[in-house]
Each structure stands twice: as structure tokens, then as C-alpha cells.
């Protein structure tokens, strides 16, 4: 059996002020999987992603990335992961080219390889005309493209996309879908969070629904979205929002 791309065991995250963001969360994502990670705002999706990528410190539990412990072997584990975060955590005065180039550099990519990858990504995400502007001058959609390019520059094996299409136009969304499907076909593992259920249904083969820091439902797309009402109904039931939803109608 091959080593899973991501294995989370009993993850718990409690913030300093006592807020329990994630509780006993366990999941395994096989290599090459396209995994949808759904849940309402504040459910613990971003916290889980932050624990996986090193932005947050897990309070308990273990995280393995391709068999590497994300705390003990953090350097080896991190070079296998690319993160496109929900927020624009970028130097606003830097240019898109600098931002992507610096990230490639942090991952130890030599200059020539960086240039090739950056040229390809600038082309792919239609950033060539904007690559020398300051990040703060770009529109929301262009900013999103820059952080996507930054996540992909080092050609990671596990790509984590935290709401990558929030606030982007239909055109980019389709470009991104095509690109993600393409790289997933080439063997990259993708973990995607999104509030667009049709996006998850279109791209993902496995789905987890998180509510109040715990996994409420986990299974294949067919298992979860195959019932009456489809993925939306399954989501509302799993997150406990069904009653409110019905009452609101």
C-alpha cells in the first residue's frame, strides 16, 4: 500500500484564549486524490490547513505528509506542500514576479529553474502584463492569481487550496479548474476548500464535511452527493444547518 499524501490523526487545536478550533480530527488523503474539504465559516478548515503547513502549532495529534512528521521532519515535509491561503499574506509593495520568485527561492529552487516556472505560471494565469506592478495595485482576481502561482512555483506534490476561487471571475475559475484537473491527472494530490459546492462536486473524488472542529461526514463524492438533494442537502444535514435552512424557506 502506498504512503498517504496526508494523514491527520486526532488533531486538536486550542487557541491561546481557549477557543477549541479543531477537535479529534482524523483523515487520510491518498496520493493522487482530489479531496474536497467543506464546512461553514469557523468550522476549523483553515485551522487544520494551518496546522498542516506550519502556520499554526497543533495542540495535540499528529500530521504526516507523505509519511514525514510535519513537526519533527518539518523541513522535509514542507517542501512537498504548496499552500494557496484564503488571505492575501503577501508583501503589498512587492511585484507578482518578486513574490513568486521569492517563494521559489525559499524552497531552494535554483535561479534558472525559478525563471522557467515563473514564466510558465505568469503565462498560465495571465499575469504577464501585471508582473511588474505592485501587488497592492492589482484587482482582487489578479491578487488571487498571484497567490495561486506562488503556491505552485516549486511544483509541490500536495497542493492545498483554501478557497482559491473566492472573489474571482468565471473565466479564471474555469482556467483554474482546467489546470487543477490537469495537474491532478499528472499525479498531484489536491486538498481544496470551497464554499462553491458545484466546484467541489465537479473536481473532487473524496469529500469531508467539517462542523464545529470535527469531521461530520467523510466519503466518496458518490456516497455523499448521491442521495436526494445532492451535495447541498448532505452538507446542510452534516453541518446541522438543515433545520435553519428549512425554517428560512
Amino acid at each position: 500500500m502506498s504512503i498517504p499524501a496526508l494523514k491527520i490523526n486526532n488533531l486538536r487545536k486550542v487557541y491561546r484564549r481557549g477557543t477549541v478550533a479543531v477537535e479529534e480530527l482524523s483523515l487520510t488523503i491518498a496520493e493522487g486524490e482530489f479531496f474536497g474539504f467543506l464546512g461553514p465559516n469557523g468550522a476549523g478548515k483553515s485551522t487544520t490547513i494551518h496546522c498542516v503547513t506550519g502556520i499554526a502549532e497543533p495542540s495535540a495529534g499528529t500530521i504526516e505528509i507523505f509519511g514525514l512528521d510535519s513537526v519533527k521532519d518539518y523541513r522535509e515535509a514542507r517542501r512537498l506542500v504548496g499552500l494557496c491561503p484564503q488571505e492575501f499574506n503577501v508583501d503589498p509593495f512587492a511585484t507578482p514576479r518578486q513574490i513568486v520568485d521569492w517563494m521559489g527561492g525559499y524552497f531552494g529552487m535554483p535561479a534558472r529553474l525559478r525563471k522557467e516556472r515563473i514564466d510558465m505560471l505568469m503565462e498560465k494565469f495571465d499575469l504577464v502584463a501585471h508582473q511588474k506592478k505592485q501587488f497592492r495595485e492589482l484587482s482582487g482576481g489578479l491578487k488571487r492569481r498571484v497567490v495561486l502561482a506562488r503556491a505552485l512555483v516549486h511544483d509541490p506534490q500536495l497542493i492545498i487550496l483554501d478557497e482559491p476561487t473566492a472573489g474571482v471571475d468565471v473565466e479564471l475559475r474555469r482556467v483554474l479548474w482546467r489546470y487543477l484537473a490537469e495537474i491532478n491527472k499528472d499525479g498531484k494530490t489536491i486538498l481544496l476548500t470551497s464554499h462553491y459546492l458545484e466546484e467541489v462536486e465537479r473536481l473532487c473524488r473524496q469529500i469531508a464535511i467539517v462542523a464545529k472542529g470535527r469531521i461530520a461526514r467523510l466519503g466518496s463524492k458518490e456516497e455523499i452527493a448521491g442521495g436526494p438533494g445532492g451535495l447541498e442537502q448532505a452538507y446542510l444535514v452534516a453541518t446541522g444547518a438543515e433545520a435553519d435552512h428549512v425554517a428560512g424557506q
Binding site: T53, I55, R75, R79, V81, P85, N89, V90, Y106
Partner: peptide, 17 residues
């Protein structure tokens, strides 16, 4: 500044000791 704007996360997610 890098904490305030959060771009310190770029180095936290990278394989830097």
C-alpha cells in the same frame, strides 16, 4: 511588518530552518 501583513507565513511554510 511581516507579522502585521502576515507575509511571514511565506517563510513559515517553506523548508527553512
Amino acid at each position: 511588518f511581516s507579522r502585521f501583513i502576515k507575509f511571514i507565513e511565506e517563510t513559515l511554510v517553506a523548508p527553512l530552518s
